[in-house]
Design a protein around this nucleic acid. Structure first.
Lengths: 107, 107
DNA sequence: CGGAGCTGTGAAAATCCTGTTAACGCAGGG
DNA sequence: CCCTGCGTTAACAGGATTTTCACAGCTCCG
């Protein structure tokens, strides 16, 4: 069981405070939904690591995804949209075809 | 225990003087009730911080809210109405779904 | 007493979030 | 070219949450 309680995660101008339910850019919180935040926390909690959809789903939804479930993709898309609004020209979440996604603190 | 006694809180045209039981817009006092003022002071005392209903209730009512208590929401609504009258086109209090509310000095 | 204002509560109305599906685009292979 | 596999995102319906309204009890005065 991999439980982690980082009080703070940082990635350039982005700062994540899981216990405060907040993801800040320049000190200003983004309005993320619960799911979006959980997903971001999970990804950012494992920087530079390629995480499979299964891993992500398990961490955020707490169960196994159905076959052909696209929830993770949809939420990554929503998350990217909001991050992109606050941090244009920055690509924090990278796609790894056929595998999953990876969070890179440095763009 | 986090007690603070700021003699003054400012947010653009809004000025709050807790010890004088007053909230002013352009020097003109708003007529807020006790609860509304306490709520505003609490929120404004933690700018940009997402505060849960529990935190807010504890700070303003001095106890734990019942389950499914909507007092905080109702008072936020009343407070917004009065702030919105004095400062149209300004959104000082932001909702964070599933969590609580946040005060942002800059709209 | 009678009026005015504040409070908390319940419930309807409005808004937002979620999970799902499907359409679309892109790249690679045959 | 056409087909296929994969990722991205628009759209939608249902559910969950928040916002607002109405109301009844209280208190504070004149």
């Amino acid at each position: 069981m991999e439980t982690q309680q980082p009080t703070q995660l940082a990635a350039g101008r982005l700062e994540i405070r899981p216990e405060e339910h907040a993801a800040l850019v320049d000190g200003r919180p983004l309005s993320l939904t619960m799911r979006e935040l959980q997903l971001l926390v999970t990804l950012a909690g494992h920087p530079q690591r390629i995480m499979t959809r299964e891993e992500l789903f398990a961490a955020v939804w707490g169960s196994q995804p159905r076959r052909d479930d696209r929830s993770v993709d949809v939420y990554v898309s929503r998350l990217r949209a909001k991050l992109g609004e606050a941090l244009p020209e920055t690509q924090l979440i990278h796609t790894h075809n056929g595998i999953g996604y990876r969070f890179s603190p440095d763009g």
